[in-house]
């Protein structure tokens, strides 16, 4: 045949798309900064048993209100507990809650969103329930759920999942609705592919990018909401060391011992900022609409 495609037209240098995405991510300054900040907090949380020497709940009235210094890195609180130990263990709890909420959202948000987006018949029913849940302000709904279930770490995870899964589902649904009409999906239908194959090979892999971006922001929301709930006294029960609990207790001693409320506040800020930068970076790299403009 005289008109075979010019083989030279295919790039010689080749790279797997996933690899190319990773390379672009690690060249993205905001992403790397965010990842670094988040990695510090997560690393501290994971290493909590090894980097703290005292029990975060051990009282020692003799040592109360000691300012940060050589003996007590972050000082002590109104009961003489090591603030370092409490903030470090608080980081662990924040990571556990954030990761659990993200995991539950990834599973159930995808399931509900994909079902609503792909099967037109389910769409109306699922989305009206979703809308009803989304009609409440997030934090009020979380407070309502924890007051019914009772304050505990597990219930905080459940409450935050109930609050955020509808939001994740809506994002997944909107990508699925767009992808469902793509011609490569039509081609798979024309080839005789079943629903499961189409969802697994053609729709979900392409819906992942916006969901990953959403989940990174969700991690930040979850950490922040957990702190809010604890601060309001409807989260994990004191004396469990969570950043919200520490800040709630430190609030009364803001003048005498400002470090009690400041240090967990800064930790919270670093975590949320890191996650937001991370999410912005992911969005820049993964969102195809932005990629075209590059």
């Amino acid at each position: 045949m005289s008109d075979v495609a010019d083989a030279e037209g295919i790039a010689l240098k080749r790279e797997h798309p996933a690899r190319a995405t990773l390379r672009r991510l690690f060249r993205h300054r905001l992403f790397v900064t965010g990842l670094f900040l988040f990695a510090i907090v997560a690393g501290i949380g994971i290493a909590a048993p090894w980097i703290t020497t005292v029990d975060p709940q051990r009282l020692s009235m003799r040592n109360k209100f000691l300012p940060p210094g050589e003996a007590w890195v972050f000082g002590t609180d109104n009961f003489g507990r090591s603030l370092w130990a409490r903030v470090v263990w608080g980081a662990q709890l924040s990571m556990i809650i954030g990761a659990s909420v993200v995991a539950l959202n990834a599973v159930f948000g995808t399931l509900i969103g994909a079902a609503a987006g792909y099967f037109r018949k389910l769409d109306n029913a699922l989305m009206r329930v979703n809308d009803a849940l989304m009609a409440f302000p997030a934090i009020l709904l979380a407070i309502a759920v924890t007051s019914v279930l009772g304050p505990s770490t597990l219930n905080v995870i459940l409450a935050l999942s109930i609050v955020y899964i509808p939001r994740t589902a809506r994002i997944v649904r909107s990508s699925v609705i767009v992808l469902r009409e793509m011609e490569y999906v039509q081609a798979a239908v024309a080839a005789g592919a079943g629903h499961w194959r189409i969802l697994r090979h053609h729709i979900l892999p392409n819906a992942m990018a916006p969901m990953i971006v959403q989940l990174s922001f969700l991690f930040a929301y979850a950490v922040l909401s957990e702190a809010t709930l604890s601060f309001l006294g409807v989260g994990a029960v004191p004396p469990t060391p969570t950043w919200g609990n520490i800040m709630a207790e430190g609030r009364d001693f803001m003048r005498e011992a400002p470090w009690i409320i400041t240090i967990p506040g800064v930790a919270l800020m670093i975590t949320v900022m890191g996650l937001n930068l991370l999410g912005d970076g992911l969005r820049d790299v993964l969102d195809p609409r932005l990629r075209i403009q590059q």
């Binding site: 798309p17 793509m182 011609e183 490569y184 039509q186 081609a187 090979h201 892999p205 392409n206």
Partner: peptide, 11 residues
């Protein structure tokens, strides 16, 4: 299909 971009799954 018409669109050589939308007709192939990018992944």
């Amino acid at each position: 299909f018409q669109d050589p971009y939308g007709a192939l799954n990018p992944r």
